[in-house]
Computed example of a mutant assay.
Amino acid sequence: MPRLRLRHRAHPVELGRIRRRIGRWATQSGVPEDVTIDLQLAVGEAVANGVEHAYGTEGADDGTVEVEMEVRDGLPSAVVVRVADHGTWRPAPQSPGFRGRGLLMIDELAQRVQVLCSPGGTEVFFEIAYPA
């Protein structure tokens, strides 16, 4: 199955579009429905972090987020994901209150989670495995 590649502006309205596109791609790729739901949630959290934190309020119209994913066949199979922005990493506040749980959620839903920060932006990598 071909790789899914999406590039959207870093704006909250894009989150629904991204989730719908992931759902269609996952169905066409034979990804089980429960895995698709976890995938949409985890990617949604990673994208939301880029939208909310990477660009700040002034740059939000100029920023973009990218999503790439592909199915890796095997035992188990997995959807391998990369979400990237080109903004600036902002460390989490010491007391996030009721917020700041996106990466924790991704950790619960996915495996091999990595967050790489550089002057060129932030990349979040993870995979969600499922029985073949």
Rank of each mutant, 00 (worst) to 15 (best):
V80D: 15
V51P: 06
G63H: 01
N49Q: 14
G87D: 06
E108P: 03
H53I: 05
A92D: 01
V65I: 02
E66Q: 15
G59D: 07
G56V: 08
Y55E: 09
P76E: 00
E68A: 11
Q94R: 15
V113Y: 00
D107V: 08
V65W: 00
D61E: 14
G59T: 03
V71C: 00
S77W: 01
A42D: 03
V67G: 06
A60T: 13
V43F: 05
L109Y: 03
E108I: 05
V47N: 04
G56M: 01
R82P: 03
R101N: 02
Q111M: 07
T88K: 15
S95D: 10
N49K: 11
G63K: 00
D61Q: 13
G44C: 12
G56Q: 03
H86T: 09
L104M: 14
A42K: 05
D85A: 10
G50Y: 11
D62T: 07
G44S: 13
E52Y: 12
V43D: 05
L75K: 12
L104K: 08
P76A: 01
V83R: 00
A46Y: 12
A48K: 09
A46E: 06
E58Y: 13
T57F: 13
A84D: 02
D73C: 00
P96R: 08
V81H: 01
A46M: 09
R99F: 14
S95M: 12
E52R: 12
L109T: 13
A46W: 08
E108V: 11
A78M: 10
A60P: 03
E52C: 05
G50E: 09
D107E: 15
R112T: 02
L103Q: 15
E108D: 08
